[in-house]
Design a protein around this nucleic acid. Sequence first.
DNA 1: TTCCAGGTGGCAT
DNA 2: ATGCCACATGGA
Length: 301
Amino acid sequence: MVIRENIKDFNLDHIFDCGQCFRWNKQQNGSYTGIAFGKPVNINFKPYIEGGFEGRLSIDNINEAEFNEHWKTYLDLDKDYGHIKSALAKKDLVLAEAIQSGQGIRILKQEPWETLISFIISQNNNIPRIKKCIEGLCQMFGLPAGSFQERDYFAFPEASVLAQLTENDLAPIKLGYRAKYIIETAKKIVTDNFDSGNKECVDVRLTTLADLRRADIVTGYEYLTSLCGVGPKVANCILLFGMEKYNSFPIDVWVRRVMHRLYHMDESDMKSMTNYASENFGEYGGIAQQYLFYHIRQLEK
DNA sequence: TTCCAGGTGGCAT
DNA sequence: ATGCCACATGGA
């Protein structure tokens, strides 16, 4: 168990229920259990003041070394969201209001390979079903990651495993037409890794994609959109949620909705939406997008 | 029954 | 370069 005090601008529901991740589930006590870096973990947060956004963070089933290696950056704890929020809130009133409804949002730094496949699955799909599909993939093809809280957990399957599957193998998971995309993309990732000459690399999952994380946003976008099943929206999600490209601005049906209803833009004019984001939200456009996404979904409930 | 969900590939202009 | 449309699946 690792504990950190005085964590600011933090709220579990805002972080794990804002559509950026799919393997975290809320527990009866309000904490979230999920799996990342091959290990199931429970994360809890107790605000010092009821309904506040500053408090004590505790992560169960990890040690200090694991916290420093993975979890500190996964939860984006080094970023000053207070500063970002006050800067973004000055941009316009719609965004200021959106920030109010999602004050504890943080952009997770997720594993690129898992983020890639997860967002291929996400297309033309809804969040509960996306979660089911991903769980199915992990249970059938992922390595066992041990038992935790009376449940068995499985890691996200490696590219080398998915690359050898047929659509028939994936049929029980009900991925629909996306099954083909997943196999195609897995094959491409494995091939690219092999071609890079990095044959002694043990972790075949992350070789090319981890390199991409270090590349600039245009290079990342070009490579990702060259993959089967990855278009502009999915590529931007991967760049934002897995590659620290906080200015990428994914436009899905919800963002289109918010840009239409609250910014009075033409619903089909994606170019104007992209331009508005880059001109007004700048380097933190992706974070602004998350506040807007969370906000419009709250309004619909 | 029809509509919808964190869209994209393929094809016709 | 842009505009349609089919694409699997399950819940509302």
